[in-house]
Amino acid sequence: MYINGMSNISAQPDDFLTSAEIIDIQGNILSAVVRPYRELIKPMLLRRMSKAVKMGIYTAVKSLSRSGLECPDAILVGTGQGCMQDTEKFMQQIEESKEQLLTPTSFIQSTHNTVSGQIALFLKCNGYNMTYTQNSVSFESCLLDAQMQLELDEDIQNVLIGAVDETSEKFTGFQKLDGQIKAETILNKELFPSSSPGSIISESAAFFSISREKTPRSLANCVGSKIINEIQSSEIEEKVVEFLSEFDLKPEQMDAVVLGNNGDHRFDDYYQILQQGIFNNILQLNYKSLTGENNSISAIGCALAVSVLQHQKIPKKFRANSKSASKFRRILIYNQYLGRNHGFILLERP
């Protein structure tokens, strides 16, 4: 399936996939850059939207218009943590009011499929609408479903797919208590190398407009994706080889690999084993020191790979080793979180 348009929001500037610029962020929770939402969304609609909904609608609409599409046949959204800001608000209201006199707005906006439902409402799209929420493979779950839709349903030609996660004060704060966020405050670009547990947590959204057939606007071909819930780090090379062999490919045939190192020394060994092993001679890219970690961040990793295939060049800030490639035809994206929910995505130049 072909990616024909994309848009993303993260803690970095709009054009961060192609520019050399880096926004430095001190502190371990990274907010996404605010975009001019009002250009697209009317104030009467905007007033109830949490950040995830705004980011989702904005990037969804942008990615569609870049592909020249108005209403897709299917909308698939991944979100590991959903609309946390409204969930937190409503939970606090229940406590404060002792279950009395509650207003429904936050509850309505708290369901995990708020973003996909709001996109459908905004675009007036009656088609297939799905929300996957499986930690760090929420986006990969959407890719898998999209691929099946295009294989099995002749009425589906175009699919909008994306992933979005937001932070909220209390709930994200809890991630400091259980070791998901680093105890010591760091500057994002100094995330690597790291010898401590935890990462830096962030917000992001990335949407892609996809079609079954190649079009003149096609930026990349998503050849396949795979989800494996549980892998031991000792098996990771074998699993990657196995995934690539599904497409008759070998690790050395990759022109670059986008790896999800997040500075958590307990789990970065999955990536390091690949970096020092089967991908030792392949150009390796990292991005989480810029964007931070969240359950939807592999969609940003995917956007990075699409951008490389499209522009055939890579800003230095993403390079994790000194290897190079003369041409970028094929890129593997691999990501996991806390050693679980492993996702593999294979992209090719169209």
């Binding site: 009467m44 109830r48 006199l101 509650l102 207003t103 429904p104 707005t105 309505i108």
Partner: peptide, 17 residues
């Protein structure tokens, strides 16, 4: 003004509170 059914529920709570 363009309020909707969700706003109506908000206003009911406002009256009571």
């Amino acid at each position: 003004l363009g309020l909707d059914s969700i706003d109506a529920l908000e206003l009911i709570v406002l009256l009571e509170k």
